[in-house]
Amino acid sequence: MTNDHDGGHDGGHDHGHGHGHDHDDHTEPPSETALRVKALESLLVEKGLVERPALDTLVDAYETKVGPRNGAAVVARAWTDDEFRRRLLDDAPAAISSIGITAPKGEHLVAVANTPRVHNLVVCTLCSCYPWGMLGLPPAWYKSAPYRARAVRDPRGVLAEFGTHLADDVEVRVWDSTSEVRYLVVPMRPSGTHGWSAEELQELVTRNSMVGVEPARSPEVTS
């Protein structure tokens, strides 16, 4: 695969800004990348390939509405409803849509459950595929090369860095996401939560627990 993206990337755009002249007569341009994004957006809108309102809606949804809340609702439901749990592990998209959550197009989700004997960890070694529809946008560490490389090579070491120490007899399964399959970890339900409602349990389901780097929060630590 050839990559010639660097051709033209820094190609001679070094306009001097002439410091010393009046500051009020111009606006300092943003970074090269930000300018390029403005250029792409204005061209794509002109060509009718994207629409401003659709972009705004997407950004708003991912910044404020999705977060890890969809995933937390799904996990809490699985903790309290065995039939739902069975369906979730069997056919996650169908189970999720049955409780009124719609995953983004093209995001085929597979749910994997932690048990006392098996711990699941999710990574995307290729780029940073992530179950956006369930967890919102990925944190910086998920997108970083060290995590992407080490989650596969040394999953126990990575888990230890997150403070998750597994017994030797617990099998670690590492799931490498692809453009078409994203994984959602169903963490184990914390002890001491007998009789809790799904709404209460949701608060214990963190983003990190659904990526598999940490267990769900313990009830003592919540407040």
Partner: peptide, 14 residues
């Protein structure tokens, strides 16, 4: 700009 770039890719795919 990061949000804009994210949204454009998702929208073009859609």
């Amino acid at each position: 700009w990061q949000a804009e770039a994210f949204a454009m890719a998702v929208r073009l795919h859609e």
